Simulated assay, not measured.
Amino acid sequence: MELHVWFAYVVTAIVFSLAPGSGTVNSISNGISYGTRRSLGAIVGLQIGLAFHIVLVGAGIGALVAQSAMAFTVIKWVGAGYLVWLGIQKWRDTNSLSTHNSDEHLSGWLLMRNAVFINLTNPKSIVFLVALFPQFIDPSKPQLVQFLILGATTVVIDAIVMLGYTTLASQMGRFIRSDRVMGKINKVFGSMFVGCGALLAMAKS
């Protein structure tokens, strides 16, 4: 994988991880309820769930490439369109992050288990990865190494972002839960998703 392709993926993966979702809600809730140190297990759990999705998506796309180059091209275009659609939906989203104080006696192991389940039961992450990965995979080159690079990059970036959300939430919980602030955040990330989708579409034209 060429360096400029990987760098472009890093930027896109950062946007993906920063955009509010179920993992973000979990990280913020844990940060408010337990603080950063006790929430580390939950961050690990989120990455376990994400890694499982990455393996599923990588295996599926690899099989697709082996069977049909045309189908691979189609899914790349569908993926670019999905990024634009997701950006429009995020722009229109006015919901705030709903957080609550959990049981104070939950252990780190239970926090991790709950976080794994949260990501495993979030189909949106699979759909997003299916849309995202083909944009950066060269079907003419070995697939496994490319998937490993993208997968590891995704997990590392998401772990760093969730740690940041957890730390921020432990200090600024009330501010993050503000409807007004979340509305602005949604619009910012919505614009980023639309921009990513448009750039990917133009790059293939």
Rank of each mutant, 00 (worst) to 15 (best):
N101Y: 04
M70G: 06
V155A: 11
L199N: 07
F133V: 07
D138Y: 05
L18I: 15
N101M: 13
W91H: 11
V15L: 00
S125L: 13
W109Q: 10
A198D: 02
Y9I: 13
L64Q: 09
A131N: 09
V74W: 08
L97R: 01
L40K: 07
H53Y: 13
M202A: 12
G45V: 13
A71P: 07
S107Y: 02
L50N: 09
W91T: 04
G87P: 01
A59F: 15
D138G: 06
F136P: 02
A169L: 09
L64H: 07
M172E: 04
Y34T: 02
L40I: 15
L86V: 10
S107I: 03
S170A: 14
Q146H: 03
G195F: 08
A42S: 15
L46H: 06
S27I: 08
F133I: 06
F189K: 00
F16W: 06
R38G: 10
E2L: 09
V188T: 01
M192H: 01
A71T: 09
S22E: 11
F16G: 11
T154P: 06
N122S: 02
P139L: 03
F72S: 03
G62P: 06
R38Q: 14
D138N: 14
I48P: 00
T154M: 10
A169D: 05
V155N: 03
H105N: 14
R180L: 13
M162G: 06
F117H: 04
S107M: 05
G183E: 09
